[in-house]
Simulated scan of single mutants.
Amino acid sequence: MPFDIKDIAHAVEAAAVMGLLPTRPQLLALGEPTHGEDMLLDLRNGLFRQLVEQEGYRTIAIESDCMMGLVVDDYVTTGTGTLDEVMECGFSHGWGTSAANRELVRWMRDFNADRPASEQLHFAGFDGPLEMTAAASPRQSLTALHSYLAAQVDADLLPCTRETLDRLLGADDRWTQPGAMLAPARSVGQSAEAGRLRLLADDLVALLDEQTPHLITATSRDAWDRARLYGRTATGLLRYHSWIADTSPARMTRLISIRDQMMAHNLLAIAERGPALVHAHNAHLQREQSSMRMGGELLAWWSAGALVNARLGEEYAFVATALGTIRHHGVDTPPADTVEGLLYALPENHYVIDAPRLATALGDKRPAPRVSPWFGYAPLDPAHLADSDGMVFVKDVLRS
C-alpha cells in the first residue's frame, strides 16, 4: 500500500502528542528551529495549556536565565510584583518583550489564582545566566547560597564569611566584560580570586548537601531546592568564566558544553519535583550530538536533551519543530526533495507528525538536508528523524 503522509499527520493537540508516547514522561520537551517568532510561541502556549489541564503537568520551563526565572515563578504562584515588572526583570535573551511569553505568564497566574500551593503551576528558566557575548557575575547565586546557609547552620561550619566573598568577587563589571569572549586575557575567570571562589563554592555546595535533613526541616523543601539552584548556578558560572579565560583550542567547545550541562542539571532538578514541560531550541533538546560552525570551526557537543535522556530514558520525550517558510527572513518554500518540502504539501498550517513512522516509511531513501538561507533558522536533519518522539510542523511562519 502506498504511503500517505496524511496518515501520520494530526492536529496540534495534547492527545495527538501523548498518543505518540508509551507513557506520560516526566519531562516533555518541545523544540523550535528558530527564536523570536511569536507564532511558534503561541502554538506552544496552546499545546502546553492543554497538557497542563489534561495531563497534569505542573512546571513550564523555558530557555531563559534560571535566576531571573525565580521572579516569574514568584509572580505566577503568589502574585508578587506586577506583570509589567515580571516581563522586564524575569526573562533573559530579550524574551520578556514577546507578546506570547507575556500571555503565557498571564495565563499561568490566572490558572494558579484559586488553587492551593500543592496544585499550582510553576515557571522555571533552565538556562544559565549566560548571553552570547558575556556571562553574569557569580555574585547573586553565590551570596544567596551563603546567606541561606548562614541563617541555618553554625558559623564555624561555613568555609568563609560574606565579607570574604565580596572581597574576592570585586566589582561585577570585572566579570561581565563582553570583550572577554573574544579576548580571553580580559577575563578574570582564571585569576587567583576566581580560583579561590571555585573552592569556596564547592565547599558551600557540599555543606548544603551535608545539612539536607536539617535544612529541609528548618526552612522548607522548596527553599532548600532553591538553594540547590543557587549552588548549581554559582559553580557552573565559575567554571564557565574559567573557560572564557582559557586560550586552548578546546575553549569554545567547552563553553558551549558547559552551558548545556548547566541546562541539563537544571532540568534534572525540575524533573525531581514533578512532571514538567520544556521549551527551547531544538539544538538544546535533541538526543543526538549538536553541532554548529563558529568562526569557520565546526563545534560539536552533547545537548541538554542528550544529557537528560541518558539519565532519564523513557522519562524524557522530545518533540522537534520543523517549518516550511519564514518569508520575512528569506526562508521560502522548501524544495520538494526535503522532509520540509514533503510536509509542505499538507493542506493545513499546523500538524503533529509521527516522526518515527515517517522515518520508517522513508526507509533508506532519506531526503537531502535542507539548506537555510538565513543563519537564524536550523533546518531538520533527516538523518535523525527517528531520534525524536514526534514533530510539530508549521507550514508558514507569519510575522506577528
Rank of each mutant, 00 (worst) to 15 (best):
A194G: 03
G195S: 04
R198D: 00
L200C: 00
L200T: 06
D202Q: 15
V205A: 14
A206M: 15
E210G: 07
Q211H: 06
Q211D: 00
Q211W: 02
T212C: 09
P213E: 01
L215D: 01
L215H: 01
T217F: 12
A218H: 08
S220L: 10
D222M: 00
D222Q: 03
A223N: 09
A223C: 05
W224I: 01
R228T: 01
L229P: 06
G231F: 10
G231K: 12
G231D: 01
R232Q: 13
A234V: 01
T235Y: 06
G236W: 04
L237K: 02
L237M: 07
L237E: 00
R239D: 05
R239H: 15
S242Y: 06
S242G: 13
W243T: 00
W243N: 00
W243E: 01
W243H: 02
I244Q: 03
I244W: 04
I244A: 12
I244C: 02
I244E: 05
A245W: 09
A245E: 07
D246C: 00
T247D: 13
T247P: 04
S248Y: 07
A250W: 15
R251C: 04
R251N: 06
M252T: 11
T253D: 13
R254G: 00
R254L: 11
I256A: 14
S257G: 15
R259V: 12
R259M: 07
R259C: 07
Q261R: 05
M262E: 04
M263I: 12
A264K: 11
A264F: 09
H265P: 14
N266F: 10
N266A: 05
N266E: 13
N266M: 12
L267T: 01
L268I: 07
I270A: 04
A271F: 12
E272H: 00
R273C: 15
R273F: 14
G274R: 13
G274K: 11
P275N: 08
A276C: 02
L277W: 04
L277P: 13
L277R: 15
V278L: 02
H279I: 02
H279F: 04
H281F: 06
A283L: 11
A283G: 07
H284T: 09
H284G: 05
L285S: 03
Q286P: 09
R287Y: 10
R287I: 06
R287L: 08
Q289A: 14
Q289H: 09
S290R: 14
S290K: 12
M294K: 13
M294R: 12
E297C: 10
E297V: 13
L298V: 13
A300T: 07
W301A: 12
W301C: 04
A304M: 10
A304H: 12
A306P: 14
L307N: 13
V308P: 09
V308R: 15
V308N: 06
N309F: 15
L312Q: 11
G313V: 10
E314Q: 14
E315K: 09
Y316V: 05
A317W: 03
F318S: 02
F318L: 03
V319Q: 11
A320S: 11
L323W: 12
G324V: 01
G324S: 03
T325E: 12
H328M: 10
V331D: 15
V331P: 04
D332H: 15
T333F: 13
P335L: 03
